[in-house]
Design a protein around this nucleic acid. Structure first.
Lengths: 342, 342
DNA sequence: ATCCCCTGCTAAAACCATTTAGCAAATGCC
DNA sequence: GGCATTTGCTAAATGGTTTTAGCAGGGGAT
């Protein structure tokens, strides 16, 4: 009952040629000397039989499998991962590759297992995605397989795709400056004095550096810098509420959208209007940035573009170097228009 | 320089046995008659060489690849997909399988390509995940491969994993009833008169049926039923605001968390206290439900459990039947405590 | 002693595509 | 016409595993 898979030999037989010929023609070898007639016959036969090459057999012979593995610490940390995966899948699909997705929870033992599982399947390249961008532990890879780090870095594997956080930080300040506000500006999420000796991640360090450099370049200074370790809405709320007890900000630069969300809540309770009384700008372009009223202007993390770029690096055999992906400005209603107040 | 992969023949040679023996021992065939001594020698040799079987070669021979494919329409619709993927990955990992993830955007041409790509790789099972749960188009699968629908249904493939929406709907009403509120209850997101002839999805239909049955069973009725097609925050906001112009609700039953989010915004602007003035309950357990103040009580979508269950069905060769996964009640602060008002 | 069965193992085929080496015929060159 | 080269194609080896068929030797039954 079960139709047997059609094999290359079947195609060759139908075309009246050897399987060598069929193989060469179908894989599109450039230097072959087979006749145009042979090409036509083989292609016709393959089409009429609905031939699909057996990937396992091909992989066995060539050690290539037209597949990549994406090994990430967390897939679930949703706001982060799925854009990366989406972009990577799309780029892989365009190159007629397939993506194995593996999750490790950041545990070295599972990382090792994941790498071995991928290697066993003869993947043509490995992407290590880190949801929290920092130096990532990566097990030894025996083969000289292309590896790219996605949203993280590793001393051992110099190819990396990262958001251009430094430029993003500068852009956020530029956006804020475009409102004309020059004083009572609050930074929400970081205070260097409170965080001495702590290290968040390279990405965040660059984001903050960009902010500070652009502030300095414009002769601007923060009225306050409010620190908290986890950038969750509740901390944004608490810090903003506490600040409002003493001062009234004109602008708040939030280090991520969840902090900004908390700030919205506190400002709303204090009956302050956004952007009439207070302007906000933030980072990440989280889903919730579009849900807020008014919409939150934010510097987006270009996840999908990053995912795409990672597989492009794999395909292009670019072995080293950092690819910095530009962070888009997502303009919504949380910044006062410059002409609105003279 | 390049170490060659160690092969089964190497193991056999080191153990002083044939590769047949090595194969049988390492794959753990039950009916073999090889001596305990042989077993020990082969295992020792394999361990000392760090032998890992070549999956391609094995797949070629056996037509099994220890891998599944998860084909979804959208991965990016984040609030939905990543829990499914996470659960599926975890369950696959436990069974020492690997997961190919493919995205189709719901386009039939890409679905077909995805299925073929998966079939070419000799996957041992297919999961079709639908982000919007409805009848799903699925290309013809030639082989008799196990297929399970995840968060969707298909006439052709009767094995499906779905959230138990009916029971979830009833639970939401029970939770609401536990506050003691019996009047001025608003349903946000559906009105049968406004949606005649429209069909959202089977899942949502069950959710609504559960709500209505439990309401009826308790002799409760909605004061108003507000309809909108897309369940986005902005619609929740608009509908709630419009309703507040006429009436004052005691409770709002929201059909998802994003609608509830919009309702929060409108209630906040109207200076109504949650849960003092208005109680809310909702569905999905979106990330943002925990960000709201007070936290939103919601009936969660059990994505991770669903993903796990799908691969368990694949592994167990359960060929048919609907697995209904219970939706957890996530209790936060948006419901008035029953003793708070006598 | 003969026959049969069981134990413990192995040779070789099979899976399917790619690739190397090479063969026969046709063509080019002087 | 004689020789070298090119053209157009194929036989056979290869990759690593599983599996079928079967071999050699020992022991028990007759």
């Amino acid at each position: 009952m079960q139709k047997k898979r059609v094999t290359l030999a079947d195609v060759a037989r139908l075309a009246g040629l050897s399987s060598t010929a069929a193989s060469m023609i179908l894989t599109g070898k450039p230097d072959t000397r087979l006749s145009a007639d042979a090409h036509a016959k083989v292609h016709a036969a393959a089409a009429s039989l609905g031939y699909r090459p057996n990937v396992a057999a091909r992989a066995l012979r060539t050690d290539k499998s037209r597949s990549f593995a994406l090994i990430s610490d967390y897939v679930a940390t949703t706001r982060f991962a799925s854009g990366l995966i989406r972009g990577a899948l799309a780029a892989a699909e365009e190159a007629k590759h397939v993506m194995l997705v593996l999750e490790t929870g950041g545990e070295p033992a599972r990382e090792l297992q994941a790498v071995e599982a991928a290697l066993d399947r003869q993947v043509d390249g490995l992407i290590f995605a880190a949801m929290r961008a920092r130096e990532v532990f990566v097990p030894n890879i025996s083969a000289n397989l292309p590896v790219v780090m996605l949203n993280g870095t590793s001393a051992r594997f110099p190819a990396a795709v990262l958001p251009d956080e430094y430029e993003g930080g500068r852009t956020a300040v530029r956006l804020l400056a475009s409102t004309g506000i020059t004083s009572s500006i609050v930074l929400l999420g970081h205070n260097p004095d409170d965080e001495k000796g702590l290290f968040r991640s390279e990405s965040i360090a660059r984001r903050i550096a960009g902010i500070r450099d652009e502030m300095a370049a414009r002769g601007l200074a923060f009225d306050a810098e409010l620190s908290c370790w986890n950038w969750e809405p509740t901390h944004g709320y608490d810090l903003t509420k506490a600040y409002l007890a003493h001062g009234k900000p004109q602008a708040i630069l939030c280090l991520n959208d969840r902090l900004a969300f908390g700030a919205y809540q506190a400002l709303g309770e204090a009956r302050l209007d956004i952007p009439g009384d207070v302007s906000l700008v933030s980072f990440d372009n989280d889903e919730l940035a579009s849900y807020l009223r008014p919409g939150l202007t934010t510097i987006g993390l270009p996840h999908e573009a990053m995912g795409r770029r990672a597989v492009e690096m794999l395909l292009g055999r670019q072995k080293a170097g950092e690819a910095l992906i530009v962070m888009p400005s997502v303009i919504r209603g949380s910044l006062r228009m410059p002409d609105a107040t003279p």
